[in-house]
Amino acid sequence: MSELLATGAQPIACQRPLRAPPRCVPPMRHAASSDITSKRRITVGAPSPELVDHWLAKAFNAQDVEAAAKMYHPEASVVRVEQVHGSNNVAKGSAGIKEVMAGYIGLKPHMDVIVHHTTVAGDFALCRSQWLISGEDKDGKKIEVHHHGMEVMRKLDNGEWVFFIDHPWGADASWTIDRPPHAD
């Protein structure tokens, strides 16, 4: 069975292997895999929308608040995660993003991530990810935060991609209902 990954007006076929999450060609690798990112310091953005989540994971794993915050557009919005930040309010702009990233980095995290699907339209892309952060809370107790995110990436003038809207738990199963209400 195949799905479509829209890239402008030209779709690219994606293959869905049995017993595995959908993978778009070329297949994305797990963030912990050393062959997906170089050893260079992240300055801003990623070369493709699929890599934005992976480069954010690299910044988290390096416990680098500045690198994590630079993966977001200056006018970006991100939904906080109650388990990490104590609320699920939306943070906006560079200062808000940096505060949210500092909350994650405060966990001394290790982040693993996979991007399940990406749809590109011009300078924007919609991604669906699944991520897991393992770390320690403020009392030193082990903590795991696992969600399914929905993200809108934006292409910068220099061709690099960054988060524009990040809803870290926007694709969680908790949002599902048996069927939508009947429309009149």
Rank of each mutant, 00 (worst) to 15 (best):
L4M: 10
G103E: 05
S129M: 01
P181V: 09
L107V: 08
A32W: 09
D166V: 10
D35A: 05
H147L: 07
H147Y: 14
G103L: 03
V81S: 04
I143V: 15
H167R: 13
V115G: 00
I114E: 06
G103T: 04
L56V: 03
A91L: 03
P180R: 12
V79P: 00
K108F: 06
A68G: 12
R23H: 04
P74W: 09
G86M: 10
V90Y: 05
P181F: 13
L4H: 05
C127D: 12
H167G: 10
L51H: 00
L18K: 06
C127W: 00
V84R: 04
G93P: 14
G122H: 03
R179I: 06
P26L: 10
V25A: 07
S174H: 14
E3G: 08
I114S: 05
V52N: 01
A31F: 08
G140P: 04
K142I: 06
S87Y: 03
S77K: 14
D166T: 13
V44Y: 05
D172R: 11
H54P: 01
G159E: 02
A173P: 00
L126T: 05
W169V: 09
V100K: 02
V162G: 00
H117N: 05
L51S: 00
E66T: 15
E144W: 02
P11L: 03
E82I: 03
R23W: 01
G159S: 05
I97C: 11
A95F: 04
K39F: 11
C14T: 14
K70Y: 07
R16Y: 05
A31V: 08
G149I: 09
L56P: 00
H146A: 15
V25W: 06
K70M: 11
A68R: 01
D64T: 05
I133C: 03
L126D: 06
D157Y: 06
D53C: 04
A69S: 13
K39L: 13
A59Y: 10
P27D: 13
C14K: 05
F124V: 12
M150F: 14
L5Y: 14
A31P: 10
V84S: 04
V162R: 02
V113D: 12
R23Y: 06
Q130A: 08
R179N: 11
V79Y: 09
G106Q: 08
V162A: 03
P181G: 09
E75M: 08
E160N: 09
D139C: 06
F163K: 02
D53Y: 09
I36L: 15
